[in-house]
C-alpha cells in the first residue's frame, strides 16, 4: 500500500495536494481503490459548486459497491477531472496520478489540519 509522504489525507480515504496556485487537488488513496476493487464509474462535481469540509461531492463506483467521496476542506470546486470519467479504471492503476477534482479553499490553513502520511497509515491499517 502506497502512502506518499508529500500528500495530506482524510480519515475517509481521500488524498489532497496543494498546488502552486493555492488550489487543492483531491483523489482517493491507493488503500481506497484497493478496497473498492475494479472501478467502473465516476461521478464528479461541477465547477463552481460550494462545498463544506466533509460534504459528499463525488461518487466512485466499483463492480462491488458505490462509495461517496467527501470534500477534505471547504471551498469552491474549480475543476473536475472529466477525462477520467471515460477511464475510471485509471483510479485503480494510479490512485495518486488520477485526481478527481480541485478545490479553491475558503480557508487555506484548513489544509494543514489534514492527516499526514503517518497518521493516515494508522487509519488505513484499521479500515
Amino acid at each position: 500500500m502506497s502512502i506518499p509522504a508529500k500528500l495530506k489525507y482524510t480519515a475517509t480515504h481521500e488524498w489532497a495536494a496543494k498546488n502552486a496556485a493555492g488550489t487543492i487537488t483531491v483523489g482517493i488513496t491507493d488503500h481506497a481503490q484497493e478496497a473498492l476493487g475494479d472501478i467502473v464509474f465516476l461521478e464528479l462535481p461541477e465547477a463552481g459548486r460550494q462545498v463544506k469540509a466533509g460534504q459528499e461531492c463525488a461518487v466512485v463506483e466499483s463492480v462491488k459497491a458505490a462509495s461517496d467521496i467527501y470534500a477534505p476542506i471547504a471551498g469552491e470546486i474549480v475543476e473536475a477531472n472529466t477525462p477520467a470519467v471515460d477511464a475510471p479504471e485509471s483510479v485503480n492503476k494510479d490512485a495518486y496520478g488520477t485526481w478527481l477534482f480541485k478545490i479553491k479553499p475558503s480557508n487555506p490553513s484548513e489544509y494543514d489540519g489534514l492527516l499526514d502520511a503517518a497518521a493516515y497509515e494508522k487509519v488505513a491499517a484499521e479500515h
Binding site: 476493487g37 475494479d38 467502473v40 463492480v63 462491488k64
Partner: peptide, 8 residues
Amino acid sequence: PINYGSQI
C-alpha cells in the same frame, strides 16, 4: 474469496 486481484 471475493476476488484474487481483479474481479473484471
